[in-house]
Amino acid sequence: MSVHTAPAHPAVRRWGSLVAAAALWLVLYRLNLPFWDWLIYDALGLSADSAAGSALHFFGYDVVKITLLLIGIIFLVTLLRSFMSLERTRALLGGRREGVGNVMAAGLGVVTPFCSCSAVPAFIGFVSAGVPIGVTMSFLIASPLVNEIAIGLLLGMFGIGPTLLYVAAGLTIAIVAGWALGRMNAQRWVEPFVFETRLRGEIVDSTAGLTWDDRIEMSREEVVTILRKIWPYLLVGIGLGAIIHGWVPTGFFTTYANADNPLGVVVAVLLGVPLYSNAAGVMPLVQSLYGAGLPMGTLLAFMMSVVALSLPEMILLRRVLKPQLIAAFIAVVATGIVVVGYLFNLIL
């Protein structure tokens, strides 16, 4: 009997290394809490009741936890999304009427891979294919608002209840806001060149002909790209969270921003609109503010206004939208977020 080891089948190697990576992820995730307990409370001898001890513990534990969550979530989401494309979404939306179209656009906004840097070509691509402006806006609102990173982090930090509320609220805002903008006859506020854009050549579907290895490599690169982009936000967010956790007395915020305070949500949204960060940077802050007693509706409203309305995206969109439509866009979305915030504070 000849003894030779056959070279591992590519499929075996591919799925084998994925399973190994998943196992390693799980072990690290499980070891995170005992490790920081040991390091801060035993090795450094800090008390869990002291401000410095609890703040350091919060910081270390959260940095590792959120980084691990992000790696897992971004990888899986990119892998799944590699089966969806803007081209396919546009084909699904082309010729839809408002109403049904807004609902579909919001749903597709969640699952279609999209980054705000492509907002302009996507806008032109949709409109020149005959997708109504309001429907296109539903897509553009849902895409950053109901964001996969936010969904994953909410799930990891607050559980299924708040996550479902967030998704439902985000979709509702995108549907209603897009529909309302459509009703305002928004075409007149779109730069005329958009309607004159003629497509040349054949359309290439961005996901055509991808192999599993391509998809896995794309997902791995996406993890690295996003982490590289957001780590400063992440550290600042968790750092602020740790300071609140350690030094701000419980009840401090609730004096000023409890659920009965009629202005709480409005203030949260007004603070959030000019702030630009992403879900990964806001979530640690939201978590520690929640621990400090702020109501969930106010916090979700704050988070949504930070991620949904960003100055860089507005500047990009200015290329295709007139200032009136940008102003209407901000006003409609901000109003929607405020309403949702009050609603959550009422029912939660």
């Binding site: 081209e87 891979p113 492509s118 691509g125 854009t197």
Partner: peptide
């Protein structure tokens, strides 16, 4: 230029 990019029919850069 976004208008020129869009004229190639691509929606995602």
């Amino acid at each position: 230029d976004v208008a020129e990019i869009a004229s190639y029919g691509i929606m995602k850069t």
